[in-house]
Design a protein around this nucleic acid. Sequence first.
DNA 1: CCAATTCGATAGTGATCCGCTATAGTGACA
DNA 2: TGTCACTATAGCGGATCACTATCGAATTGG
Lengths: 297, 297
Amino acid sequence: MEMHQIRYFLAVSRTLNFTRAAEDCHVAQPSLTRAIKLLEAELGGDLFRRERNLTHLTEFGKRMLPLLGQCYESAVAAKRLATSIRSGSLVSLTLALSHTVSMTLLIPALTELLRLFPQLELRFLRGTAVEIAEHLKKGDAALAVAGPLGESWERFDAWPLFSEAMEIVVGEASGPASDEPVSLRDLARSRLLYRPYCEMAGLIDEHLLEGQVSWTDRYEVVSEQDLLHLVRSGLGVGVLPKSTASGNTEGLRWLQVDGFEIHRTVSLYGVSGRERSAPAAALLKLLRARDWSADVS
Amino acid sequence: MEMHQIRYFLAVSRTLNFTRAAEDCHVAQPSLTRAIKLLEAELGGDLFRRERNLTHLTEFGKRMLPLLGQCYESAVAAKRLATSIRSGSLVSLTLALSHTVSMTLLIPALTELLRLFPQLELRFLRGTAVEIAEHLKKGDAALAVAGPLGESWERFDAWPLFSEAMEIVVGEASGPASDEPVSLRDLARSRLLYRPYCEMAGLIDEHLLEGQVSWTDRYEVVSEQDLLHLVRSGLGVGVLPKSTASGNTEGLRWLQVDGFEIHRTVSLYGVSGRERSAPAAALLKLLRARDWSADVS
DNA sequence: CCAATTCGATAGTGATCCGCTATAGTGACA
DNA sequence: TGTCACTATAGCGGATCACTATCGAATTGG
C-alpha cells in the first residue's frame, strides 16, 4: 500500500470520476487507473464500481474510505507540523534539573528566555545525577542544571554557574539553643533528614563518618520541599545547599558546625557535538552571563 | 512521503539502531539509511541524532513520531479490515425500502437470512420511489423493496413479489355509519390524509379526479404510522395498501367504496450487471420464494 | 439514427527510484 | 592498538511509476 495509491483512491472517492481525479492529482489517467487496480489487488476486493456515469464506491470501498482517509490525513498533518516547526512558530526546549536545584534560581533567566521566544514550549525533567546524565545522553534534554554529575563522559560540556556551601539547617525552635558554633558530635543525636537524590549525598556521608559521627536516626525524604517542612516542624536536621531555601527562610535556622564544610558547584551541562536549538543556545548564554552572588549568600 | 519511509522511520524509532531496523524491515541497511535521509529532507529537519551507540530521536523526530505512527497504523488497520471482510467475517447488506413497505413484511425473510449469515450487518434506507431509484443507481443499496418505481432504467431488475389493493380506511367511530358500500362522493367531505411519499400517490389522485371528487380538505403526512394514528383518532381518511396495517387493525375500519379500485405491485429491485454479495443473493432468493398471500388478505 | 463526446482500460516506452552488494569511515571497547 | 559495531557512500540492476497514444463502450445531441 503506497501513499500515492491512497491519494488517488481518495481523489476518486471525491470526484467519482477517474479522469477528473487524475487531473486533481496531476497525473495521467492510466497511471491513476493502474494505481487503483494495484490497491484493489492488495486489499483483495474492488473499491469502485466503474459505471462511466455512475461510478461509485463499493460496499468494500466505503469500508476502506475512513481508514485510508485517516492514513492520508496523518501524513498531511505530519508535513504541516514539520513546516510549522521549521518556520519557528513551534519551538520547544527540554531542560533537565537536579532535584537539588530550585526552580527559583532559573526564573530570571527563563523569564528573559520567554521574552526572546514567546512561542517557546518549555519542558522540565527532574532527576538524580544519574538520571540527568541519562537524559542528556539520550537526548531527552538539550541542557541540564545540576551539581556534579559524577559521571565522567568526555562529551559532557559543563559550564560552572556558581559554588555554594552545603549548610546544616534546623527548625527555629529546635536544635542547640545557642548561636555559637556547635560540634558535629553535639548534633549526632538529632535525626538526620537524608536526601538520597542529592549529588553530594555520598560526600556528605563520608564527611560525617570522618567526623566520627554516626547518626542514630535517619529519615529519607524525596524532595527539598518535604525536607523543609519536616525541618520546620522540628522533626530533624537537614543538610542543604544554601540556595535551596534562599528567600524562604521563615522557621529555619542555619547552624555553624565545627568541622563541617562542604561546597558544591552547580553547573550547566550540555553534550558537545550536538547542535543546539536557538532557545537552548540563548538559555545557555543567559545562565552563564548571570550574576549568582545574590542566590548563594 | 512514502509508506516505506514511514515504516523504516518507525523501525528505527523502536530499535534506535539503523542496522537492526534494516533487519527488522527485511531490507539492506543502506536502503533504510537513504529512505530516512529522504524523509528528513522532505520534512526539513533531522529525525535522528546518529551517535552509533546513542542514536536517538531528535526533538523534531519526537514530534513526528505520533503522527507518522498513526499514519502507519491506519494503513495496517485498513489491510486488517480488508482481510477480515474478504474472509467473510464481516459482511454487510444495505436494503432500500419504500416508506410504504412495512418492515413486518420482511421480518420472516430477514430472520431466515440472519440464520444463514449470523455475522451479517444489515442496514436499511427508507425513501420515496425517486430516492430509492437513486440509492440503487449510486450503489448505496444492493436491493430495494418498493412499489412501482416509475423510473424506467433498463438496468433495473424488478422481481414482482405480490399485488395488493389500495384500500380506504377510516376510524372505527367515524365515517359513514353503514357497512354498505359508499360512493366516493359521500366520502369527499371527509379530510383526506395524503401520503406524498407513496408510489401510487399520482395514480390515486387521478382516480379521485376521474370520480369527480375534489377533497376540500387535505393533510399531508410523512409516515404510515402517523397516518394510522390520525385515522384512528377520526381526523381523516387514508388510502393505504392492504398490507400496511395487516395485523394492526384495532380502531380501523375498511370501507368498500364504489368506483375506487387501485392495485399496486410490490417488487424487489436490483441493478443488473452488478455482482451481488452472498447475503444479497440469499435475500433475493428468500423474498422471491415467499408466499405473500397471508400478508395481503 | 448517426456523429461527437465522455470515460475507463490497455499497450508500449522512458525515467525514476528502490533495493542490493561492496566498501569506506569512524567511534567504542577490550 | 586492533577489532568490532554502526552508519554513509558508490555503483549497479530491476521494479514500477508516469507518460503518450489509442481503443472500446456508452451516453448525448442534433
